[in-house]
């Protein structure tokens, strides 16, 4: 039996990290993610980890880089505005192949925006975590339990692939309290051959992303890693897809809402299913491959102008069967509205 707690999503992220074996947490306050840092300030010492509040997100992520370079298990928590500032160093860490976990709790809209639920940072974290064209794994939990599971797991993923890993969710999921079960045990930590660890007598090591003499070979090594990640990290949930004529696609809390929509639609006799990407980078294209050339319709639901819908269209082959439902930014999509759109699509079918 694990340990159950009734806890906020953000605090669940912090507690899961402590239990996974997080040794250093570096942080700058930003709503709606600040509870992660507050929880760490109060609890990380329990396991001997270090907490530091930096003077900015730029400093926080570079502190994390410095800690990670020693082989310590490190993390930061932020929101889109902070993630923008961190992107420079995330690129350096991806280039230097240094593991770390970044929890990004999305804010709504560009600029200062607002705090309502949104998914506007999909492209930012999956495609644009800084310059240079790196790919980093991104988990998209849909509830507090998944925040716990994925934060815990992400430390292992980061070390296995030697890369920063993002856990992305919206402010709603971060603020709501839910009952969760914490897994037992830490993420297993294996010895490595790259970090600046304490090993008297070993040869000096260099942790760097700079390849002034020519980056060709290093690029190909990174590409091979991205291929490996694409092979091993395509994660998704399929629900009622076997006989579905219309398949909803949604990640995070939208995926959770869509699951309820599927049940409602089935009650009405609509053959509706759901594909919920659990990792949004690498995008789980293989979930969609079998539908190429079929008459199955896809309806992607996002709380943004439309970002993941392009990945869906690419995976399924864009045609008249791919549709997008743009929810107004700043509120969760209503089940009734999605159902109406499904009825419409069904009508167009017959």
């Amino acid at each position: 039996m694990g340990d159950f707690k009734f806890i906020k999503g953000n605090e669940a992220a912090a507690e899961a990290a402590i239990r996974a074996g997080c040794e250093g947490f570096f942080f700058y306050p930003v709503t709606p993610s600040s509870e992660i840092g507050e929880y760490m300030a109060n609890h990380l010492h329990r396991t001997g980890g270090v907490f530091a509040q930096a003077e900015s997100e730029i400093a926080a992520v570079n502190m994390m880089f410095g800690g990670a370079a020693t082989g310590a298990r490190v993390m930061t928590g932020t929101s889109g505005v902070g993630y923008s500032l961190m992107s420079e160093c995330i690129s350096y860490m991806a280039g230097a192949e240094v593991p770390a976990v970044i929890v990004d709790v999305m804010r709504a809209g560009p600029g200062l925006g607002s705090l309502e639920p949104t998914q506007g940072d999909y492209n930012q974290v999956t495609k644009a975590s800084g310059h240079g064209g790196h790919i980093i794994p991104v988990y998209a939990p849909s509830n507090a339990q998944e925040i716990v599971n994925f934060v815990h797991e992400s430390f292992g993923t980061a070390e296995r692939f030697r890369t920063p890993v993002v856990v992305l969710y919206d402010g709603y999921t971060g603020q709501v309290m839910e009952s969760v079960e914490f897994p037992e045990g830490r993420q297993e930590k294996k010895p490595n051959t790259w970090s600046l660890d304490d090993a008297p007598g070993r040869k000096g090591r260099v942790v760097r992303s700079g390849y002034a003499g020519g980056i060709g070979q290093h690029s190909f090594e990174l590409y091979a890693k991205y291929d490996d990640m694409k092979e091993k990290l395509q994660r998704f949930e399929e629900y009622q897809t076997e006989d579905a004529e219309i398949i909803l696609v949604g990640f995070g809390i939208v995926g959770r809402i869509c699951k309820s929509v599927v049940d409602k639609a089935r009650d009405e006799g609509l053959k509706v299913g759901l594909i919920r990407p659990i990792m949004i980078s690498p995008f789980p294209a293989k979930a969609f491959a079998k539908y190429k050339g079929t008459k199955v319709k896809f309806l992607t639901i996002e709380m943004s102008y439309g970002q993941m819908c392009h990945d869906v269209a690419l995976a399924v082959g864009e045609n008249d069967n791919t549709h997008f439902f743009r929810d107004k930014c700043g509120s969760l999509p209503a089940m009734s509205e999605i159902l109406n759109r499904l009825r419409q699509l069904k009508g167009e079918n017959s």
Binding site: A52, A59, N62, M63, G66, T70, Y92
Partner: peptide, 23 residues
């Protein structure tokens, strides 16, 4: 010949603080 970490432009101070705290 000894251990080296190369970080973004201007950021060594922050990286040094983080490293010293962790080790």
């Amino acid at each position: 010949t000894y251990d080296i970490l190369s970080v973004p432009h201007g950021r060594p101070g922050a990286a040094a603080s983080g490293m010293k705290k962790c080790d």
